[in-house]
Computed example of a mutant assay.
Amino acid sequence: MKALFTLLFLASFSLQHTIAQTSKAIAETWVPVQKAGVKGGVNVASVSNLANSSAFLGLHGGFFGEIRPREAFGYGGEVMFSKQGVTASNLDFSLNYLSVPVFLNLYHGKVTFQGGGYGALLFMATAKMGQDKKDITDNFQTTDYGLLVGLRFRPLDKTFIGLRFNLGLQNINNNFTKNSAAVLRNRNIQVSAGYQF
């Protein structure tokens, strides 16, 4: 009987030790990470359904934050200035937005896949030919929203480069065209570089 109690005690102790070590190993495998940083880059933008139009080159820049609760999964958001637009009829139409993208991240080694959406507030729009510039903010809707999909590569620990496509879903036309019923939507490819604090 004494031997049985001794055996049960040793088995119980071993089981507790094994569970404790396993729990510690699982806990040490991944610790939730919070990150923040800055990013900026180039926009290759356009507006759908405009005849004889071409891409508009602009800039974007701002701040990002991310939470990574799992090794392969996380989510984040950004606050960005984004200069977009379109070139048509020898005029550059510039649309300046404050954009707030939110997205999910899927991590695989140094590569991150992103998908989500964005909301944006238009604070100025201009038409420019040569040195002449005209304010046309009232010809566009004051807000925009859409979907985004992107890819990010981290060559070094704190730096990354990224490629993202923003697909506008809102009709941004507000008597910009002669046909007031025309549906115009933003399209934007962003090439970025960033630094994590």
Results as ranks from 00 to 15, higher is better:
Leu10Asp: 10
Ala55Met: 10
Gly146Lys: 04
Gly58Lys: 04
Leu7Tyr: 02
Gly130Gln: 08
Ala182Met: 08
Ser46Trp: 13
Ala182His: 03
Ser54Leu: 05
Gly162Asp: 13
Gly37Ile: 08
Lys24Arg: 13
Val149Leu: 15
Asn188Trp: 06
Asn105His: 08
Ile161Arg: 02
Ala36His: 06
Lys133Thr: 12
Asp157Val: 09
Asn52His: 13
Thr112Gly: 00
Gly109Leu: 10
Leu59Phe: 11
Lys134Asp: 10
Phe73Met: 12
Lys110Gly: 02
Arg154Gly: 04
Ala25Ser: 12
Leu50Ala: 03
Gly37Trp: 03
Leu163Gly: 12
Asp135Ile: 07
Pro69Phe: 09
Lys133Leu: 08
Lys178Gln: 13
Lys24Phe: 09
Ile26Lys: 13
Ile189Thr: 04
Asn52Ile: 09
Ala125Cys: 06
His108Leu: 14
Tyr145His: 06
Trp30Asn: 09
Tyr145Val: 02
Asp135Ser: 04
Phe123Ala: 04
Phe123Pro: 02
Asn171His: 05
Pro69Asp: 08
Phe197Trp: 13
Met80Ser: 06
Leu104Asp: 01
Leu10Ala: 14
Leu57Ser: 08
Ser89Met: 09
Phe64Trp: 12
Thr143Ile: 10
Val79Ala: 15
Asn179Ser: 10
Leu10Thr: 07
Ile19Glu: 14
Val31Ile: 13
Gly77Val: 03
Val38Met: 13
Asn188Asp: 15
Ser89Pro: 00
Phe13Ala: 14
Gly58Val: 05
Gln16Met: 12
Gln141Ser: 12
Ala45Lys: 06
Ser99Arg: 15
Val47Tyr: 02
Gly130His: 06
Asp157Gln: 14
Val191Phe: 15
Arg70Asp: 05
Phe140Lys: 05
Arg154Glu: 15
Gly40Cys: 07
Thr159Trp: 07
Phe197Gly: 01
Val38His: 01
Gln84Met: 14
Tyr118Val: 03
Phe81Asn: 07
Gly62Glu: 06
His108Tyr: 12
Tyr75Arg: 02
Asp138Glu: 14
Thr143Val: 10
Lys24Cys: 10
Lys24Val: 05
Lys128Val: 03
Pro155Ile: 09
Gln21Asn: 15
Ile136Cys: 06
Lys133Val: 09
Gly65Asp: 02
Leu50Ile: 15
Lys35Tyr: 00
Gln16Val: 10
Val47Lys: 04
Gly77His: 03
Asp92Ile: 00
Gln84Trp: 00
Gly117Leu: 06
Leu59Glu: 03
Ser14Pro: 00
Asn179Gln: 10
Tyr107Leu: 09
Ala3Ser: 12
Arg68Asp: 11
Val102Gly: 15
Leu122His: 01
Leu151His: 03
Thr87Ile: 14
Asn139Gln: 14
Phe56Cys: 03
Asn96Ser: 13
Leu8Cys: 10
Ser94Trp: 00
Phe93Leu: 13
Ser46Ile: 01
Leu95Thr: 03
Gly162His: 05
Ser12Tyr: 02
Ala193Tyr: 07
Val79Cys: 12
Val86Cys: 05
Thr159Val: 15
Lys178Gly: 15
Thr137Cys: 03
Asn173Val: 04
Gly61Tyr: 01
